[in-house]
Amino acid sequence: MSVRIDIQGLRPESVTVVPSPLAELGMALHALSEPGHHPGLQGWATGVTARMEPHLADRMSEADFLWRTTFSDLFLPYAAVPDALPAGTLAGELDQLDKLTDEQFVDTALEFTGVIAYDTRVPGLLSDPAGRRRALAVAASRGPQQVRFARRLLDDPPSVRAWLRRFLADCAGAFFDETWSRLRHQLAADARHKTELLRRKGLAEALAAVSPAVTLDETGTRITVDKLTDGHARVAADGLLLVPTSLGRPHLMVLHRYGWQPVLHYPVGSPELASPASVEELTLRMAALSHPVRMRLCRHLARSAHTTSELAQLHGLSAPEVSRHLGVLKRAGLVTTRRRGRYVLHQLDVTVVARLGSDFLEGMLR
């Protein structure tokens, strides 16, 4: 399984490496919401959380599906704007976010529902009543707060857009401006290094430096990103964009949304992970993960809690089949469950999975 980007005809000067403060703010919100994904950031996350005003924390949970369940492409809005690059300032990139149409904004914000195709042209949720109903049903499984927000988004996109911009600006003042002032130099240095590799040694060398999971084929016409998902994109006149992240490790993400410029959002730095499990635990857990279906289930469960019926729909399986696989994972101590109203939600325990080794964890979170 992989994401493939066709780059036939791509000119070297059309490959751009540049940091993005808005993308990094999105990863900051994700790390605060899912600290288990980022063991190396626990000190930072604890400090930010301790200083955060309760009102801002409440607003953060109100729309956390934009950065917790999936990393929304709203944090990479320049990919949807013709001939645009990251503006380099948060205010400038929020202005780029304002350039998205309501349809683009809603479809991208509700990507977590999985009811709209990602890399093909399909009707938008604002014009598709059946898609709207499915999106609200999926949001309901996340809880009343999520469904209220999703309903607001579908009924009144402009007010939600204004809300999101105010929220992100408030996050900048509360904690992100200080964090960005420290990180931007590291990210700019990495961008310069990758740009120099592009100029001196070519795209293959630069992509190898981005991640061993990113390769260029022998013909130089296709990039393959090794991920537990399938996807396809084709570069257009805007070219290919590479955006480094410090807070995002270990996530290696590929924006391959239909009609948008492809983006590789790649991690720099290497925080340490937890120590390995005992031999007995390792044997049990690796046996549980030996089935390819359970590997694919883990990819979704690593990002968010899901119900059995959601997983069945996502993977084209019956609910009893999914339940059997979940039972194996739970007996191995890899999956936790909790009840929310009439829904039973399952989620991968990334702290436990981290003990299996960084290669496996990064594969799940890629």
Score class of each variant (00 low, 15 high):
residue 105 F to A: 01
residue 201 K to G: 13
residue 276 P to D: 09
residue 291 H to R: 13
residue 365 L to C: 03
residue 42 Q to N: 09
residue 36 G to N: 01
residue 333 G to R: 05
residue 270 S to E: 15
residue 150 A to L: 02
residue 10 L to V: 04
residue 226 D to T: 12
residue 181 S to K: 11
residue 213 A to H: 10
residue 42 Q to V: 11
residue 86 P to Y: 01
residue 80 A to Q: 02
residue 244 P to E: 06
residue 170 D to H: 11
residue 121 R to M: 15
residue 312 A to L: 06
residue 337 T to E: 15
residue 123 P to S: 07
residue 63 A to S: 09
residue 263 V to I: 06
residue 202 G to H: 00
residue 277 A to N: 11
residue 232 H to C: 12
residue 75 F to S: 02
residue 170 D to I: 05
residue 245 T to N: 04
residue 156 D to V: 10
residue 145 Q to W: 11
residue 279 V to N: 13
residue 221 T to S: 13
residue 7 I to S: 07
residue 345 L to T: 07
residue 325 H to Y: 09
residue 8 Q to L: 12
residue 280 E to V: 14
residue 106 V to P: 00
residue 6 D to G: 11
residue 195 T to R: 05
residue 331 R to W: 13
residue 261 Q to G: 08
residue 251 H to T: 11
residue 103 E to D: 12
residue 150 A to I: 07
residue 150 A to Q: 05
residue 259 G to C: 01
residue 235 V to N: 02
residue 193 H to S: 14
residue 217 D to G: 05
residue 114 G to L: 06
residue 157 P to E: 01
residue 344 V to D: 13
residue 112 F to E: 03
residue 196 E to P: 07
residue 94 L to K: 00
residue 23 A to S: 10
residue 144 P to A: 12
residue 118 Y to S: 08
residue 38 H to L: 03
residue 321 E to I: 09
residue 127 S to R: 14
residue 327 G to R: 08
residue 194 K to W: 15
residue 78 Y to G: 01
residue 131 G to A: 02
residue 177 D to G: 09
residue 65 F to A: 08
residue 59 R to G: 02
residue 81 V to T: 00
residue 176 F to G: 04
residue 157 P to I: 03
residue 248 G to I: 02
residue 284 L to F: 10
residue 248 G to M: 04
residue 47 G to H: 02
residue 329 L to S: 07
residue 211 S to A: 08
residue 101 T to V: 01
residue 178 E to D: 11
residue 337 T to C: 07
residue 307 T to G: 11
residue 240 L to K: 02
residue 314 L to A: 14
residue 57 A to G: 05
residue 32 L to F: 01
residue 362 E to I: 07
residue 11 R to D: 11
residue 163 W to M: 10
residue 148 R to Q: 11
residue 357 G to R: 00
residue 200 R to A: 13
residue 38 H to K: 00
residue 286 M to K: 15
residue 316 G to H: 07
residue 220 G to F: 04
residue 332 A to D: 06
residue 211 S to E: 08
residue 336 T to P: 11
residue 28 A to N: 07
residue 26 G to N: 04
residue 361 L to F: 05
residue 62 E to Y: 11
residue 278 S to W: 08
residue 181 S to P: 07
residue 330 K to Y: 11
residue 107 D to A: 00
residue 22 L to K: 03
residue 12 P to L: 06
residue 322 V to W: 08
residue 328 V to D: 14
residue 343 Y to C: 08
residue 77 P to M: 00
residue 322 V to E: 08
residue 59 R to F: 05
residue 12 P to A: 03
residue 62 E to W: 13
residue 251 H to N: 09
residue 213 A to C: 12
residue 133 R to T: 14
residue 297 L to D: 10
residue 349 D to I: 05
residue 79 A to L: 01
residue 335 V to R: 01
residue 51 R to D: 08
residue 213 A to D: 14
residue 284 L to A: 14
residue 235 V to E: 04
residue 275 S to W: 14
residue 164 L to S: 05
residue 317 L to C: 11
residue 74 L to C: 00
residue 192 R to I: 12
residue 315 H to M: 12
residue 124 G to F: 04
residue 347 Q to E: 15
residue 146 Q to K: 13
residue 97 L to Q: 00
residue 110 L to T: 01
residue 292 P to C: 09
residue 136 L to Y: 06
residue 177 D to I: 10
residue 364 M to H: 02
residue 288 A to L: 06
residue 366 R to A: 10
residue 250 P to K: 00
residue 335 V to Q: 06
